[in-house]
Nucleic acid binder design. Structure first.
Lengths: 136, 136
DNA sequence: ATCCTTGCAAATTCTTTGCAGTTAA
DNA sequence: TTAACTGCAAAGAATTTGCAAGGAT
């Protein structure tokens, strides 16, 4: 999808910093602020950490981004896409996306609760195949 | 359920501080570290913030607690119970539990992915009934 | 032209750590 | 008894803020 449209739709100006942030998060899949900053600096030496924070927070609040917490790891951000499931490894901290329809779940929760729901974060934690081998 | 048993099962000593932390989290339902500390101090003036952090982190890693992130609010902790759904209000930050079976979801995700899953955090975000009225 | 955004540095807030004394098992 | 736990204070991280200069619309 087009980030430019998305930014404009939220009345955010299309700056090179914002585009770079979105592109790097997209490329990384799931990433925390520190790591994102380190990567951005490679192609964008002048960017400041404060700018990364301001933008990530702002876009998170606008639901352009979502956040996933795994024990022992910092909050990881990703581009908001269709509702899906995250598989998170408690050992290495990696997060994998899984396409599976959770629309029904959301619909039934909404009608039962009276909440007006608009986004979701579903994280299933455990050990990824690779970490299972290591601990075996 | 019995916290004493649970602590012993994880080789954690049963201290008054730990019991108080668990009891206050239970009573609050969902609470962040700061707020928890403030409440604990009322009945436990000598408790230190460092102790709260150490214990919450430790119990989170052991999955005695789980964590929920809502935009604009600090991480909130709760006692780990049977897998269930959290309804979180992005406006007031409140979190409500909803008993609904997500065992199937977990089982199918596990068999499809090769992950060994052992806990889950399902958060559906939106506006609670009360905040819907305010914004109407 | 205007308002938003950036980058810097400082301030603040949050979290962890080391250690000596205390306590649960 | 002894290994774990607590509280304190200090250190260290993480995050936010104020403001002047620059940039997008």
């Amino acid at each position: 999808m087009n980030y430019i449209e998305q930014l404009k739709a939220h009345a955010l100006k299309v700056t090179p910093q914002r585009m770079a942030i979105l592109e790097e998060i997209e490329a990384a899949g799931h990433i925390d602020v520190d790591h994102l900053y380190e990567i951005l600096r490679m192609n964008f030496p002048s960017i400041s950490l404060a700018t990364v924070y301001k933008n990530v927070n702002q876009m998170y609040e606008l639901q352009i981004l979502e956040a996933i917490k795994v024990p022992n790891h910092k909050l990881q951000y990703e581009i908001t896409k269709a509702p899906h499931i995250h598989l998170a490894c408690d050992s290495c901290g990696s997060v994998m996306d899984m396409q599976q329809c959770i629309g029904e779940l959301i619909d039934s929760a909404e009608s039962e609760s009276g909440y007006r729901l608009n986004h979701s974060t579903v994280v299933l934690n455990g050990l990824c195949p690779s970490c299972q081998k290591k601990s075996a």
